[in-house]
């Protein structure tokens, strides 16, 4: 039996050994190497080698193509200066995850461009209250596990047909088929709200808007109108304010505060007992203090307060308006 060489695999060890070794950095060198049917395994499975690994100077040398291909890397040879370029997608590494100080099941990261977590698991749903689903194309949906946020027994305002659509709401280009909702989830100071019953209205730069309003025949069937009203984060830096005014049979019942961006939504709770005809009117107060009411035209400046020509001047969310009998 021939003596077996011991082998150092650490890079640092190689460096130490190399410091004492000397060989040509260019040209041909006759070296004594051990060929010993050296195998390569990757994750417990043999790797097919096309040229023999060898042991030389306490290091196992392998044909780079063999190992690189086994590891899913692409190998290219560059002539001048002589170099082997190995490119590989960075491997996935474990990621530790803490949610408000509590460790959650770990995720994966490549250490540079993504940090992803197993959000679809029961542990995450329990910790976050979000039901997370993913399709095979990489689309992610987060749904609040709590479901509907409408009061018990309430009817979403958007489920009723308005008797009159006013201003922009009557513009079928902006609101095809009179559909007032279901475009976007509202976002207010970072908080997302499901958009399925949120009434959305905004002013785009350079457009002429007609301040909108909604009339409903309630026929005295409801007692309370509830919801939240806010300036959406799309226009968080808007310098003006907006509000809603509620009228029952021509009499002002309530109005929200003048709302500005970067503030929590105002809670709406309006007593509509006995009201036959409910009017919901929008009002905009621009940065100069001029008020524009339902039906009036507002000629928007060419850019929003941030300087953007594509983001809205102001965008409002009437979140989950609902009528309770």
């Amino acid at each position: 039996m021939k003596p077996k060489w011991s082998v150092a695999l650490g890079v640092a060890t190689s460096a130490v050994l190399w410091a004492g070794a000397s060989y040509a950095s260019t040209g041909v060198q006759m070296v004594r190497a051990e060929f010993d049917n050296i195998g390569i395994q990757l994750n417990g499975r043999p790797v097919t080698v096309t040229a023999q690994p060898m042991i030389y100077n306490y290091n196992v040398y392998v044909p780079i193509s063999t190992v690189a291909h086994a590891l899913g890397a692409h190998v290219a040879w560059v002539n001048s200066p002589a170099a082997v370029m190995v490119t590989a997608p960075p491997s996935a590494q474990p990621l530790r995850v803490f949610y408000n100080g509590t460790a959650l099941p770990g995720g994966v990261t490549n250490g540079t461009s993504y940090a992803d977590v197993p959000a679809t698991t029961a542990a995450y749903m329990q910790a976050t209250g979000l039901k997370t689903t993913v399709d095979t194309a990489g689309n992610v949906n987060f749904a609040p596990a709590a479901g509907s946020s409408l009061p018990a027994g309430a009817t979403a305002l958007t489920a009723l047909t308005p008797s009159t659509l006013l201003g922009d709401f009557a513009n079928t280009t902006l609101y095809p088929g009179g559909r007032l909702t279901n475009q976007w989830p509202a976002t207010v100071i970072g908080q997302l709200y499901p958009g399925s019953s949120t009434v959305e209205w905004g002013i785009m730069p350079g457009q002429t808007s007609k301040i909108p309003g909604l009339d409903y025949n309630l026929g005295g069937r409801y007692r309370t109108l509830t919801g939240l009203f806010a300036v959406d984060d799309l226009s968080k830096n808007y310098n003006g304010t907006v509000r809603l005014v509620f009228l029952g049979d021509g009499v002002t019942l309530a109005q929200t505060p003048w709302m500005q961006g970067g503030s929590a939504p105002a809670a709406v709770s309006v007593d509509v007992s006995g009201v036959q005809n409910l009017q919901i009117q929008y009002q905009v107060k621009d940065a100069q203090g001029t008020v524009y009411a339902t039906g009036q035209s507002y000629v928007a400046p060419p850019q929003n307060p941030d300087g953007s020509k594509t983001d809205p001047i102001v965008f409002t969310d009437f979140i989950d308006p609902a009528l309770t009998p």
Partner: peptide
Amino acid sequence: NAKRQVELTANPPATIRRGNMDYAGLPV
């Protein structure tokens, strides 16, 4: 040393797909 073999352990790369983030079914 007993088996005279090199044993590599590597995590496979993850497959990354870019998609939409939705909240309650609507795009964010």
